[in-house]
Amino acid sequence: MKAIGEFTKGIIKENPVFIMALGLCPALAVSTSVENAIGMGAAATFVLLGSNLIISLIKNFIPAKIRIPCFILVIASFVTIVDMTMHAYLPPLHKSLGIFIPLIVVNCLILSRAEAFASKNGVGLSILDALGMGIGFTLALVIIATFREILGSGTFLNMQILPQSYKPMIVAILPPGAFFTIGLLMGLFNQLKKKNN
């Protein structure tokens, strides 16, 4: 029962973006299209999974003093793996995500899960936590990107869904649009949370 809870908490109840406000930099920067959001979410989930797995495995060997450098090393290795693999096999996605792939290293969501969860729990729970958080992060990105892509380009997953006569609201795919969307969605989440309590 506890295991299921560790998995589902990341999706809504402790959603990394909307509730914990973690990993906002990529959430703002690469949510201009749903395609980018899925790519970014998948990359972050992979890194999260890898780092949680390794850290929960080696947590007993790491002296407390140097745990942060060790975590960062593990995370950076996984990010570099994602970066090189994506560059080789998915060049268009790599091109559009650009600098934000290497920047996953400093995504505070991943370090915070390593510090707050993986370094204290077993392998199984850590993997479930990483999966839940990764899915929650991807979901948040996709929700934000859905609004931004439809309003800002009139498309969804690059398919034209609004009539051609629609004049795209350019601000939605500019940085201010990301702030507006995240702000309004966070407000909505808080409202829902308040009602549920």
Partner: peptide, 10 residues
């Protein structure tokens, strides 16, 4: 400002 950023041409 919002209109200016959204529909600069118009």
């Amino acid at each position: 400002a919002f209109l200016m950023a959204s529909w600069p041409v118009q």
